[in-house]
């Protein structure tokens, strides 16, 4: 149970980074931290004490493995988070080219 709570503390640090920081790169780092904590939480849900990795061997009881379903879903989630991060970073680079700053309070003009 303490591992779940530590994971949620990591998620709260991500929320703090997204809402409180004024630099665009810091906001993106906060998003990445939130993604890490959620992936770790999914894997923690499927862990079994003294379980084996979900790879079949000859002399293995099926029910002594860890749960492979959350691992598969987290695999999808990791790759999608790469796509999200690349898109957000490209938008940030574009904003920097246009306004010359990463500070979100200085980006005020809406028309180009």
């Amino acid at each position: 149970m303490s591992l779940y709570i530590l994971c949620m503390i990591l998620f709260c640090i991500g929320i703090y980074g997204v809402l409180r920081k004024r630099n665009l790169v810091k906001i993106i780092i906060g998003l990445a931290i939130m993604g890490y904590s959620i992936n770790l939480f999914l894997v923690l849900l499927g862990y079994r004490f003294h379980g084996r990795a979900a790879i079949e061997a000859e002399t293995q009881d099926i029910l002594s493995m860890v749960d492979p379903l959350p691992q598969a879903m987290a695999l999808t989630s990791i790759v999608i988070s790469l796509g999200i991060l690349a898109l957000v970073i490209s938008i940030a680079i574009r904003i920097y080219e246009k306004y010359g700053t990463f500070d979100i309070t200085k980006i005020k003009r809406l028309k180009g």
């Binding site: 790169v25 894997v43 691992q71 790759v79």
Partner: peptide
């Protein structure tokens, strides 16, 4: 936590993320 596939994928994705972020 006995998830070797995830560890490999996270390693590759993380290196790509670092390259993109350092480029930015």
């Amino acid at each position: 936590l006995k998830a070797p596939d995830l560890a490999i994928t996270q390693l590759v994705v993380e290196i790509l993320c670092l390259i993109i972020l350092i480029r930015a």
